[in-house]
């Protein structure tokens, strides 16, 4: 599909999110530009602490102190900058336009309220529904995520659900106000493998059924391969590569992406040693000069230590931030 034809849901431009800690300013998201299209599943991958969760929270303006969005724009449907919304506007925006499914379903639902109460609460603030109507809508949301006998289960408390069911309920809560985008932040990391597969399948089905865009935040390249249409790779607060999922797995461009994929054990083959990425993740307080990956990069050149590479278009909807491509060393 041609990029220009797709409707842009979110246009993130030069976003900067910093955490002001005692150790210094942590540049968790540093000058990131990214488009999220309507109906697509975009997977944001990277190691822990690379800023992917911070980036996703910014879309709801939920970055918590000491974090702060210090610059950039987040344009919603091409016109409104949600960073300019006042308190009331952003509250109306949250839940109804963007919703988040968090990583740990045991802690993301309030233990003292019934599941139904928690869904109804969201429905009543965003839709002109009250009482019975709102409850009816919550049953619908629960049956959508295949919770058995939703009329009864809505009146149960989170602790009466299994972990997998809780994550389904969380997805139901997220979808209850028909948002344009659901952010799934490591939605399966805390679940058993069999439950993981069920939840992934559910997300896939729901996306096809409802046409909701999904921003899948994960470090799991397997999950990404199953679910995503496009992949964005983040390293130390920056996006280093973005492109369609098939191309990414067939031929990763950025040296970091290559290294990431190299660290996955190939199926059907005995491997004694997994390939590791040498060195440590660069500090977000004092990131290295030039390209942030250069101290760990096998192909680092002189220019990589001096200048910060920009994302360049290499065709087929793929972009990469690496001088190897700009200088024509690699194609």
């Amino acid at each position: 599909m041609d990029e220009e034809e797709k409707e842009v849901l979110f246009d993130i431009r030069n976003l900067k999110v910093y955490y002001y800690t005692l150790d210094g300013v942590v540049k968790a998201v540093d000058d990131v530009s990214l488009k999220i299209y309507k109906g697509e599943t975009l997977s944001l991958v990277g190691e822990s602490g690379c800023g992917k969760s911070t980036l996703s929270l910014s879309l709801c303006r939920l970055v918590q102190r000491p974090g702060k969005i210090v610059g950039g724009e987040i344009l919603y449907k091409g016109s409104e900058d949600i960073l300019k919304y006042d308190e009331k506007q952003i509250q109306q925006f949250r839940g109804s336009k963007v919703a988040i499914v968090f990583q740990d379903p045991t802690s993301s639902l309030n233990p003292v309220f019934r599941i139904g109460d928690q869904i109804v609460e969201a429905i009543t603030i965003h839709q002109a529904l009250k009482g019975k109507e709102a409850w009816k809508k919550s049953y619908e949301a629960l049956s959508l995520v295949k919770i058995p006998s939703p009329e009864d289960m809505a009146h149960s408390y989170p602790h009466q659900y299994s972990a997998g069911m809780r994550q389904r309920a969380m997805i139901a809560l997220a979808l209850s106000c028909n948002p344009d985008l659901v952010i799934a932040d490591e939605p399966t990391s805390n679940l058993d493998v069999t439950i993981q597969a069920q939840i992934l399948l559910l997300l896939k089905e729901l996306k096809e059924k409802l046409g909701t865009s999904i921003l899948l935040v994960t470090h799991d390249l397997g999950v990404t391969a199953q679910l995503a249409d496009r992949v964005a790779v983040m390293y130390a607060g920056k996006i280093v590569e973005i492109g369609p999922v098939e191309d990414f797995y067939k031929k990763p461009l950025h040296p970091y992406s290559k290294a990431l994929l190299g660290a996955i054990p190939p199926p059907h083959k005995d491997v004694d040693m997994l390939q590791e990425i040498k060195g440590e993740v660069s500090s977000l307080v004092n990131p290295p000069e030039g390209c942030r990956f250069h101290p760990r990069c096998e192909h680092a050149m002189d220019i990589c230590t001096k200048k910060d590479p920009e994302l360049i278009d290499v065709g087929n909807g793929r972009k990469v931030a690496c001088f190897l491509y700009k200088e024509g060393v690699m194609k």
Binding site: C60, L62, E87, F102, S107, N110, E121, M170
Partner: peptide, 15 residues
């Protein structure tokens, strides 16, 4: 600092 507080905020509830 619990996740369910983030969930509550994410729903669009008033602080």
């Amino acid at each position: 600092s619990k996740d369910y507080i983030m969930t509550a905020r994410m729903k669009g509830l008033k602080e």
